[in-house]
Design a protein around this nucleic acid. Sequence first.
RNA 1: GGAGGCAUAGCUCAGUUGGUUAGAGUACAUGCUUGACAUGCAUGGGGUCGAUGGUUCGAAUCCAUCUGUCUCCACCA
Length: 882
Amino acid sequence: MNQNHELPKTYSPGEFEDRIYKNWCDKNYFTPTIDKSKPHYSIVIPPPNITGQLHMGHALDNTLQDILIRYKRMSGFCTLWLPGTDHASIATEAKIVAAMREEGLTKEEIGREKFLERAWDWKEKYGGRIVSQLKKLGSSCDWSRERFTLDEGCSRAVKDVFIRLYEKGLIYRGERIINWCPHCLTSISDAEVEYEDQAGFFWHIKYPFTDGSGYLEFATTRPETMLGDTAVAVNPNDERYKDIVGKTLRIPLVGREIPVIADEYVETDFGTGVVKITPAHDPNDFEVGRRHDLPIINVMTPDAKIVDDYPKYAGMDRYEARKAIVEDLREQGYLIKVENYTHNVGTCYRCSTTVEPRVSMQWFVKMKPLAEPAIKAVREGDIKFVPERFDKNYFHWMENIRDWCISRQLWWGHRIPAFYCDDCGEMVITKDESAVCPKCKKAMRQDPDTLDTWFSSALWPFSTLGWPDETEDLKYFYPTSTLVTGYDIITFWVSRMIFSGLEYMGEKPFDTVLIHGLVRDAQGRKMSKSLGNGIDPLEIIEKYGADALRYALATGNSPGNDMRFSDEKIEAARNFANKLWNASRFVRMNLTVDSIELPSPEKLGIEDKWILTRFNNTVSEVRAALDRFDIGVALSLLNDFTWDIFCDWYIELSKAKLNDRENPANKITQNVIGYVLIGTLKLLHPFIPFITEEIYLSLPHSDESIMISKYPEYDSAIDFSSEAVKLDKIIDVTKSIRARRSEMNVAPSRKAKLFIATKYNDIFNEESAVFFTRLASASEVIISENFDSDERISLDEAVQVITDTATVYIPLSDIIDFEKEKERLNGERKKLLGEIERLEKKLSNEGFVAKAPAAVIDGEKAKLAKYRENLAGVDAAIEKLH
RNA sequence: GGAGGCAUAGCUCAGUUGGUUAGAGUACAUGCUUGACAUGCAUGGGGUCGAUGGUUCGAAUCCAUCUGUCUCCACCA
C-alpha cells in the first residue's frame, strides 16, 4: 500500500497536470517492453506538420488515440503509440521563403545548401513546438521512438522505395501536363488541387479560315491561351462541321496557321460545338494534342507570365494578358460577344492561387498495379473503416486512380535519387550520393527536385518501425492496429499507406481505420484562420484543464461525424471533472481503512449489492463500446454511472452508515465505496487521465500509478442482479414521494411520517427504512401490509403515493387540496388504462404472440402486470377520497 | 455530372443487428445554505423522431421517392 494524501478543496487542474505528466515520463510508462507472450496494440500518430500549432483537429485526433492506447495498455496489451512529425515540404518551404523575403533574400540568391541549413534551423527551433503541445494534452506517446519524416531512417526508406519501384517499372519520368502553382512555383498532385466556383466570362471569338471562306466561331473562358493554340476541334459526328474538318485557320493577333481537327472529346451540344485546343495549358487539350500529334506551345513562364515570343504581351501576367488580348480582339473585330459565366477553377491547396496546367518533365508512380491489391484488402475486410461508409469514398478514388505526380520543384524534402550525365544524357537511379556516369565516367548531376511529402508519409507505419531493416519493433508491432484520422485525408494519406504497406511489407499497415469528423465552431462553421473563429486548445487547457478538453471532445460524438465545440460543452466537461473531484473528496474524508478489500457477499447491504451490480454492468458496457470504437457512447455511459448512479444515489444511500463510525457496517461501506470509486477512476482514466491519477494516488492504492493498473473486467462475483432490483423499487418510491411533495410545494425541511403499505417486506423493512428518512423527508417510517383500520393514520386525510410495489400514505392533511388530488388520480388512472389497453391489444394480437421473440413477450407481460398493480392502487386511492 | 452524410425537445446531440410510455446535456420554470460539490441538489414543462408511400405482428430504426442542408469526387471548352 502506498502513502495517500488529502485532496485540496478545489479542483485546480493546472496544479497537477504537468507534474503528473512529468512523473509518467520519468517512470517510462509510455515505453513498452516487447513481450512476445502478450498481444500487441500499436498506433502510429498522423504526424503533424512541423509548421503547425496544435489546433482542435489535432486535439480531437490525439485524444481519441490516447483513449484507445490507454484502454489497451490497461487491458494487458503490449502497447505502442509511436509519435513523430512531418517535414511538410511545401508548407515549410513557403514559411522559410517568406521569412527570407523579410530579409530581402530569395532562395536562388543563397542557394540550395544554405537554404537547407535555414530549413533545418527552423525545424530545430519550431519543430518541437507541436510535440510539447501534444504533451500538454496528456498523450501517452513513446517519445523515445519519436520520428521525423526527413530523419535518416525515413530517408533511407524513401530512397529504397523509389529504387524498388523504379526497377519494377512503376516509377517513370515523362513530359506530362501537371498542375502547376505559379505562386509556390512547383507542381502539385491532383489531390492537392482544390476546386472552387469563380465568376468569369465566356468570350465568343472567331478565327478566319485561311482560304477566305469565312470564320469559325467558338467560346473560351481563357482567351489568353490562344497564343498557344495548335488546333481547333469539332466532334467527328457533328453534321454542322463535317465539311470544315481538315481546313486551316489563322489565329488572330498571332498569325499562326492551325488545322481544324475532329475529336470525340468535343461535345456537340455545349456552346458552339467548337473548341480551341491549347495542349500546353489545358489537361484535356493536352490529351487531344497527343492523339493528333499536335505541337505543344508553352506561352507562359513558371510564374504565369507571357513568354518573350509574344513581344506585345511579354511579361504580362495571365490576367493582364487576358485583358489586353480581349481588347485587341475586340478592336480587330474577332470578338463576337461576352457572356457572364461561372465555372470551377482549380486552386492550390496551400496558397489558393489558381493552378496553371503546365507541360513539364515530372516523375510519376504508375498507380493501377498498386491500387488493385489495396482495393482487395478493404473489399475483403482485411482492413476496416469505422464507420464503414467511408470505404465507398476509398473505393471510388482507388478505382478511378490516376498516376501520381511525385516530383516537386522544391528544396525542402527527399531529393529524387536520379542522376543525369550532362555529356551523354545517361540517367542513373542510385542511393549513391556521388554517382558517376557509367559511360563517360564523369560526375553526374542529381535531379534538383524533391518528392511529394505524402511519398514519405505513405511509408510511415513501417519506416518508423525501422524498415527496410528487419528490426524487432517491425517484427513485433507491424501491422499496426488502429489508424485514427479525419475523413479529409483518406485519399491523401490512408489510401497511400495501404498500397505502400501491401507492396513493400507484403502486409496491410493496420487493421482498422477509425475516422472522425471535423471540429467546428459553436455555429457549425469550419474553424479557419481567415474567419478567425478558431479555438486554441492550449487556451482551453489553460482555463479548464486538459481533462475537460478531452472530455468535451470525446463526448457526444460518433465516428465520422463532425462536432461543434462550444463554451457550454467545455463547461459541462469541467463540471463533470469537478463533480468527480468532490465525490472523491467525500469518499477520501470518510475513509479510515488503509486498504480496500471487497467484503464477502453476506456482509453487504442491499445498496452495496445494487451499486456493485450497476458498476459491473457499466464495466461490460463500457468495454463493449470501446471495443467497437464507440468512444462517445463509452464516455456517456461513464458519465451517467458516475454522476447519476454513484453520486446521486449510492453516495446518498451510503451516508447513513458512513457517518456512523459506531455502526458495524461502517467499514463494509467504506470498502464498497472505495472499491467502486477506484474502479470508476480506472474506467475513466483513458478519457481523463490527469484527474483520475491525482485522485487515485490520494486513495489507498496498490499500483504506483493508475495508468499501469488493470482496467476493470466483468466479475460474476459481484453480480447481484436479482437483489439489486429491490433497490430500484426503493428508488421508484423515493422519487414518487419527492415528486408528490414538490408538486404540493412542501418544503424539504418539513418532515412527515411515512406509512408504507406493501406486501413486499423483503424490499420495505427496517434496513431500507433509513433510506426514506434520509432521501424522502421521512420523520418516521411505518410499514404494514395495509393500514385500512389502523388508528395511527386516517387514510382519507393522507397524501397517497402509488407504485407497483407499495402505496405510501403521508399525513399532510392540512395542505391537501382534495379536488386537485382527485383530478390528479383520475389523470393517472386514464394514463394507466390507456397503457393497459395498448398492451392487452398487443398481447392478444396473434401475429405478435406467434412471431415476436419470447423475451419481448415476457417483457410486455411484466409491464402489463406492473400497470395493473398500479391501477389497483390508484383505484383504491380514489375510493378512499370519497 | 457522380457519390455520401445529416434532418429526433428552444439549442447541441445519443438512440448498437426493427420490440422503451423516444433519452442525455444545456436552456427554461419551481423549490432547496440537505456537513463532497450552487461548477451543486430536488421536481417539472417541452418531441405526431423532415414529408409521403412501402415491407412487417411491430418502424425514429429497413426500402423507395421527395424536400432542406452539408461534404467528398470529377470537371465541359
